[in-house]
């Protein structure tokens, strides 16, 4: 009976949302960027007099100093135009990691969960896999402004390395306090960059470094610095969650 009601609700809501939204949305082929904020982000014309109409001056490989010059526009949006959202987002992750810690910590003891039998191949191969994974993770978050990837993806990859360590042997236990301190420092670093922007340029989270040549590793001003901090923070947070889940009551 309950399922029937839920099914009716499903169909009703699908009809309500679908038909209603269909009237206003520009879907698929009808979708254009014209006049949207996304277009101005791509053209890097947010701060010009007429963001939607002005001719584009953006060019890959050139040094024209426009709006941070990150080749990956998504990164420019995430850590540039909408950096404040990202600050909130890492805070949310920080809060969740704290919450998970609080829930598991409540029972007092902090021993790690013993695995039945660590995989032999895994424990042998982890020795040389580990540096590779960490290197790859670091590569992903240092090149976030040039290629797909960035702090969140790189951070997850590094957390996977910590998980590998847990899987490889029963002796390993992540340094919980150290991770928490690293989290705090990288989060505070992000905020201090924001406050430095406020002091130097008058706007919170504004860029205060030279923006360089689009496509070069040392470009895009403050963006790579922030993404490295986010990478560290996310890796510490997710590793912390891994170690909390691997702990035993």
């Amino acid at each position: 009976m309950k399922k029937v009601i839920a099914l009716l609700l499903f169909l009703g809501l699908l009809f309500f949302l679908g038909t209603g939204l269909e009237q206003g949305l520009k879907l698929g082929d009808r979708n254009t960027l014209a006049g949207k904020a996304g277009e101005a982000y791509l053209k890097r014309t947010v701060n010009s007099a007429d963001p939607s109409a002005s001719p584009s001056q953006v060019e890959y490989g050139s040094e024209t100093d426009i709006e941070e010059n990150a080749a990956n526009t998504l990164t420019a949006v995430v850590v540039g135009y909408r950096s404040f959202d990202t600050l909130g987002e890492v805070t949310v992750l920080f809060l969740a990691a704290t919450g998970v810690m609080a829930l598991f910590f409540a029972s007092g003891k902090k021993k790690r969960l013993a695995l039945a039998k660590p995989n032999f191949i895994l424990s042998v191969s982890s020795g040389f896999l580990l540096p590779l994974i960490i290197l790859f993770g670091a590569y992903v978050f240092t090149h976030g402004h040039l290629t797909p990837g960035g702090g969140f993806q790189g951070g997850t990859i590094i957390a996977a390395a910590v998980l590998l360590l847990y899987m490889a042997g029963n002796a390993y236990k992540a340094p919980a306090t150290g991770l928490k301190v690293l989290e705090g420092f990288s989060g505070a670093g992000y905020l201090l960059i924001g406050l430095a922007g406020l002091l130097l340029t008058g706007f919170f989270l504004n860029n205060f470094l030279p923006s360089g040549k689009m496509g070069a590793l040392f470009s895009a001003g403050v963006i790579p610095v922030v993404y490295i901090l986010i990478g560290l923070k996310v890796s510490a947070e997710l590793s912390g969650i891994v170690s909390d889940y691997m702990g035993e009551d």
Binding site: Y41, V46, P51, Y81, F203
Partner: peptide, 10 residues
């Protein structure tokens, strides 16, 4: 925030 024009930035 970030010095972006208010319609586009936050």
């Amino acid at each position: 925030i970030g010095g972006w024009a208010s319609a586009y930035g936050i």
